[in-house]
Each structure stands twice: as C-alpha cells, then as structure tokens.
Design a protein around this nucleic acid. Sequence first.
DNA 1: TTGAAAGCGCTAACAT
DNA 2: ATGTTAGCGCTTTCAA
Lengths: 359, 359
Amino acid sequence: MNRFVTFTPGVYSYRTMSAEKRGPATVKQVAAMAGVSPTVVSRVLHGKAAGIRVSEQTAIRVREAAKTLGYRRNALAGSLRDRKTMMLGVIHGVDDSRARFSGESRYFAALMDGIVDGAFEHGYSVTLCPKLQGQGIEDAMSDGRFDGLIWYRSTTLPEEKRIIQESTLPLVVIHDPAPAEGGNVAGVQCDNEQGIGIAIDHLLGLGHTKIGFAIESVYLVGEGVLRRDAFLAVAKRKGIPDPENQLVYFNSPSELVPTIKSKGLTAVICWNDATAATVLRTVQQNGLRVPEELSIIGFDSTIFCDTLTPPLTSVAQPLETMGMEAAKALVGLIENPVEKSFNIVLPCGLDIRGSTAKV
Amino acid sequence: MNRFVTFTPGVYSYRTMSAEKRGPATVKQVAAMAGVSPTVVSRVLHGKAAGIRVSEQTAIRVREAAKTLGYRRNALAGSLRDRKTMMLGVIHGVDDSRARFSGESRYFAALMDGIVDGAFEHGYSVTLCPKLQGQGIEDAMSDGRFDGLIWYRSTTLPEEKRIIQESTLPLVVIHDPAPAEGGNVAGVQCDNEQGIGIAIDHLLGLGHTKIGFAIESVYLVGEGVLRRDAFLAVAKRKGIPDPENQLVYFNSPSELVPTIKSKGLTAVICWNDATAATVLRTVQQNGLRVPEELSIIGFDSTIFCDTLTPPLTSVAQPLETMGMEAAKALVGLIENPVEKSFNIVLPCGLDIRGSTAKV
DNA sequence: TTGAAAGCGCTAACAT
DNA sequence: ATGTTAGCGCTTTCAA
C-alpha cells in the first residue's frame, strides 16, 4: 500500500493529509502538494548541488509548493538523523555559581564575545547550559544537543579531570591546559609567564629591582600557582636575586605592610586585580603613597582598574582572542578530529595606568 | 520477526547488537541488556512516577544495565518526539551587527545575565543565534530547536513587525511594545516616562526650571521618539511652561551651544548617554562649566558614565530585571499560552553622579 | 506487568 | 529521474 495516498500524479490532495497541523509544513506535505515523494523534496530543497538529479520542471513545482506552504526545515529532525547539530555548548560554572556577563569583571563577557564571533563565523550557534540544574556536564556531553563543548573553568577538581579525559565529545577547556592523556581536547590559556615578564620589564624599566609577588595563601591553587611559578621563573631569568624571598604570601591584609617593608620592596606584582586592590587599599591606609613609594601591578586588567585611585596598571589577558580561538579550535576538532590533545597559549598585554612610577 | 533479537529472557546478548556504537548507549541497548523492551526502559528511566507500573525487580535490572552501559538520554530524539526542547533562543541583532557583551555599554551583558538567570531557574538553556548567517529569525522561529524566542532589538522595521505578528512561536520582544494584534507575544520595556520623570524631579529639586531635552535629529525614531514624548508629557504634567520649546534637536554639535543659550537652559536631559557625552564635551569646549553652569543627565547609565569628567548623572534601566522578566514571561507563554499579547513595563532608577548641581 | 507498533521529520541507500 | 525502505532514539497508544 502506498503510504502517500496523494501520490496520484497531478492530484493535489495534500489538504487531506492533516487539516490542522501545528507548526510549519513538512517535507511530506510539500511532497504531497507537488505530487512527488519526500525524497525528491529533500533533494531539491536541501540536496547538495552535485548529485541532485531532479528535472528542472519537478524542482520548480517543489519549490513553489514549499513557498506556498511556508516550508521550513526542521533542524531537530535533521540533527537527529545526521548527528550534527551545529550547536556549541558553553559550560561556565565557576565554583558553585555561574559566570556573569556584567559586574566588576569583564572577564566572561569578553570571552563570550570571542566565542560567539568565532562560532557564528562558522555557522554554529552557542548555547549556555545550566550547570547546576541537574544537567551536569556529563549530560551536556552526551545528550546529543551539541557538536562540541567549551568549558570555561577556574578551578580543577580531580573529578573534572576525569570527565575531561573521558569525554567522547570534542572539548575545549579555557584556562587550564588540556590533559596530556585523552584525545580531541584542546586547552586555551594566556601566557602567564610572558604576562609576568612584561610586568617585570615595565618595572625594571622604571628602575625597580626589589620586585615582589603577592598572593593570598588561599589562592595558591590553579592559576595562582601558575602565575607564582611564572614569576619565579622570569625573575630568575632576568637576574633578580633570590626571587623566592620576594614572594609575599598572606592570609590577612594586616600582614602586608610589615612583609613588604621587611623585604624592602619598591614594587609588587599581584596575582590578580582583586588582590592588587586589597594591597593598594591596605598600604595606602598605612600611609604608603602609591605609586611614589610603592608601585603595584595587577593581573587581568578588569574594568575596575580604572575606578581605583590611582588607576591600576595591570596585565591584560587577550580575552576576546582566547574566546575566538577556543571556538575555532572546537570547530576544528569537530570537523577534523585529532588524536592528541593540544594547547593554545596566547600572549598578554600590559595596560599601564597610574599605579606604577619611577622608583 | 522479532526486531529485538536479544529478547530471549535472561540471555544478555546485547553485545551482538552493535559492537561499535559511537556515542552513549540507547534505550534499545539498555533494554537488550536488561532483557526487557525499550518501552520498559523508557518507563523506568524517564517515566513520571505516577504511571510507571513496572515491577521493582525489573526496574532494578534496568537501572543497573543503564549504569553499566553509561546510558544518557538523547535529548534530541526526545525533543523531536515531544516537540519540547527546553531551549530558548536569543536573537540579538542590532542594526546590522550583533550586540556585544563587553565594550562601552553593559547593556547586553546585563540583559543576558537576567535572561540566563531566568531561564536556568526554569531549567531552560539559552542559545544565541547568528542572525546574519543566512539563519534569519524566521528560520529560528520554525526550525524546531526552540520552545520560544527572545528578541532584543533597538529598531523597528515594518518587515519585522510583520514577522512578530505572524510568529507561531512564543516570543518576547525587548525594548519595543508587543504589537496589539497577534497573540502569544510579550514586550518588555523600561518605563521611559517614569525615567524621565525622576530625572526632571531631580533637577526641579536642585532648583532648575529651564530644563531641555536633547537628541540628534537622526535618532528621532523608536526609543528616541518614545523618550522625547515622555519628556513632553512629564514636563507638561509638572507645570514646566512650553516644553515644546525646550526641545534641543541637532544635527551637528556646533548647533548645541547657541541653541542652549538662546533658550536659556540651565539643565539638559539627553535621550541617551552617548548623546549626553557629546553635549558635555561640546559645552565644555565652549567654556561652559558642568555642572556649575549647566546640569546634564544621560539615559541608560552605561558604564562609561563614570569615566567622563564630571561623571554623568544618568537614568538607569533595570536591565537585569528586564532580562529576567523577559525569560520568565517567555517560559510563561510556553507553558501557558495566552490569547492576547501583553507588555511588561519596569521602572527606572537614577544614578546621581557629578554632572548635576544646584542652579 | 510487559510488549509491539507507530511516528516525530529527515535523508542515504538502494531500487526501479 | 524518481520512489521505497529503513532508521536516527524516543515514548505513547493499544494490546496481551
């Protein structure tokens, strides 16, 4: 029995198919109206130009029917069949809350601008997934909705490492390096060492030699450790004597001024802007003038650098570029899977504001 | 013939089904392993507690098989069948380019924070759709991927009005009112009249009576018109004489100072922050001191208000709230469609900075 | 309590 | 050049 009851050539009984269909017309309906099979409709409307093999006459009838019926391709059905959704998922849990676009830090906003630009350029949509709503990352990884995932994270839990390694989906991790094991994962990071390097160069150029690196002990994980190690490596390379002794670890701001004075520092690089703001406020409260008596450099160049007095000189991550590269790398992994994971490391800039001066 | 070759009870020959399956296991595979039909698996794993009707024994076997196989529900397949995706689309074309998260204006960033919070709260994901990549809004409306759409727009083309009216999908328009005709559409706007109202009250409180409203002629469309009309209405209501004559339309900044002086204005409300910045710069260049000789108020309270000298007093839209309300309204329309369109109008605040002072 | 069948909309593979 | 079949993974009848 012919399932397409309306196929009798020339007889357009498509109206009988389903008087009250919600939503847009389907290939089946267009086929009925044009008096052809759904296959032909699919070929005319979506087939790659190469192997269409449909008579021009038929094609015209099909296109007309499609137009009349207001046909739109159902992307969901196509995706299910082709296992291709043209959607990238962004997981953006940071600790226990989601990253925010607005607020003190332009971090996530700039990153997303890059991601979206990169994705759109290749025709992919970008979806923000609720991480904490029962939809864990492992669900997002395997519920079929995404061709690939971007994971913006600031901490590395062991549990997460495992998930990343076992991912079956192309994955880009922003901030952390991709795990050495496991394929089809890319990492995108800024070059902490180079970033600390330009900060130190800037200070050396201003005549400083007693340059410290400040970080709350509690932040000695993840990025904090990376930047501290970067400081040690670069300082050593630049010939700064005994950099280990220039480290300013602290638990409470009250420890800052004594430590800075006892080490005789004239400049402090802080592991991020928030810490720099703390240092700035604290030393000022203790009567030290910035930048006259102490130069301070932050890291991240968040938007509130401008709101401090004096405005904070800070190392700037190329956030938008990082987002863009992440999206591009992900599209690459999707379209050309690779065996080995790899990392993309991007150079930082230095936004010189008012918190640094000649010694 | 039994399609489920492995159904012989107790015989777990699921391995024969498909030795090399990419991606996660399916209900079929779990069924084979547990020695039941896919129907039962679906019922155990996803069925609403009410009508499950499966023996506890079987249920346990199914759950174990699911765990062993690492089963994950394929959201795509479910969505296709149920016509429910739990995804909201965000169209954010502004003129010819997409809205940006970072940059001078926190506009879109704050809006998105609200949208995402609102959506996540109800378990919906949020997808940013490329508007200009051949995927017009009409495609997004009917490709089956979204349960509803949020359209963030700053201009109103007639063509777009038509699309909105004819939308078959629940739709929320941010910025413009929902068209009177056509159902299941909501509009979200800030209360321009109330916003202008608090600006005027602030100025009246400072002793000003010669209060103008400035806008480039070219912006006398959409929101610009709404705010001008709001100014006229409020000014009239507050008893400011002849408000029509306090309007400062201009094509070039050079027209500003002569107009302001000829009208004898002591304060100017500008239709948005960018225009306010132009007015500020121009009058200062002409030797007028702000706020001593002229008070200036902007509209939108964008982040660069703080970077001007003096910092700009400005009417603030409740952007995050607007986004949140938009998402909630959309979820409402999805889950409980309404016949008539409606609008949500939210009150503005006034961020008082340094550009206003006693007359 | 459990299973078979059917179909969401699409298209590649295989006829004709 | 065009049509039939089958199946992506899921779940809701309906039947046993």
